[in-house]
Design a protein around this nucleic acid. Structure first.
Lengths: 192, 192
DNA sequence: CTCAATTGTCTAGCGACGCTAGGATCGAGA
DNA sequence: TCTCGATCCTAGCGTCGCTAGACAATTGAG
């Protein structure tokens, strides 16, 4: 039985390698450069091997996205827990979120710009995605103010962060003034 | 001389046809379906003709984006001018913006998701793009509150709208509750 | 220990993509 | 009527995502 187990381990290891390599390549040269050929070459296997792990390129993007969702959830929670007041907590959360998007553009793209074949806002949404939203909700739900549904408030706040992240990264917003934008957003949206 | 003028007119007409057809096809079947072959077939010319008008597919997307920018500017101005109070004006603007994004997803994608090869927040940003931002600034600049730079406020408000638009369209946010989200956003961000 | 069956991997290739070179065709002006 | 330049098309290049089918390695039964 141990032989099969070893093979399974090796297979899982190779799958991690594929996802990590795709992510690395995407961060280095953009998702356009992540072709199945190049990816196969980097992991030192032939193309069809990729398809024995994933249904296609989409699913590879999706796998990177799920990784990213877990990380962003962790980053948000870490930032929130290191703050002393609700106000600081929200600011730290916003900064952490935008920081993550800026430092991991390819992962952020996999999550929100590209089609990773993932379901959202749905019952069969993968756990890491639901958890990432939950991480936001934990800190944002309590600062929405009276009579405002926590979920709704979190959605709006999140959308604002997402807009800032994408517009900044795409060059639609000048990259300076990030800090005052955060300030303004937190000042106005959060009731603290 | 009249012959050359006629030819120029016909050429310009064909260029409009290309852009209109690309846009139509994109709205019908998504940008992935807009291939140079299909586009050429629809306009009843061969592929290379496209390249005598545009440097490549990118520039075609860019042309659709510029069209969209002009329309969104007009939509925003129309909405703003039909309102009686600053508060109403901002609400109407937000609704018009999100409406445009929802009704013209392909155009919105050309503007903000895809690479149309356009410069943003730059000196050589095309006029329609600068004007679209100006249209937002006209209504939003005055409701930013004391001591807040109108440009900065407009950027943040715009980013929030953009976030709502993209997340909703991509299925990341449940499509209902659009109205309460607008309400919340305007309530909090605008100082009116 | 041998040999068939299964598993794993690779080579080769399909159709479609964006884009372009080079030849055919057509119309304007001499 | 003839020439020449503009205009447009056919054909094809390299690359893409993806897959069929050949081949080798590993397994388990006799």
């Amino acid at each position: 039985m141990s032989v099969q187990e070893r093979k399974q381990r090796e297979r899982a290891e190779r799958e991690r390698l594929i996802v990590a390599t795709a992510r690395e390549l995407a961060e280095q040269q953009g998702w356009d450069a992540v072709t199945t050929r190049r990816l196969a070459e980097r992991i030192e296997y032939s193309q069809p091997v990729l398809y024995s792990h994933f249904r296609g390129k989409r699913e590879i993007i999706g796998a990177v996205a799920l990784e990213g969702a877990a990380e962003i959830a962790a980053a948000v929670r870490a930032a929130a827990s290191s703050a002393n007041s609700p106000r600081e907590r929200v600011t730290a959360l916003a900064r952490a979120y935008l920081d993550f998007a800026a430092c991991n553009p390819a992962v952020y793209d996999a999550l929100f710009q590209l089609d990773g074949g993932l379901a959202f806002a749905d019952e069969d949404t993968p756990e890491p995605l639901k958890d990432a939203f939950a991480a936001l909700l934990e800190s944002l739900g309590e600062v929405g103010g009276n009579g405002v549904h926590p979920g709704l408030f979190t959605e709006v706040f999140w959308a604002s962060l997402h807009g800032l992240a994408t517009l900044t990264r795409a060059g639609r917003l000048p990259p300076e003034d990030i800090e005052p934008r955060i300030e303004l957003l937190v000042d106005r949206l959060a009731m603290v």
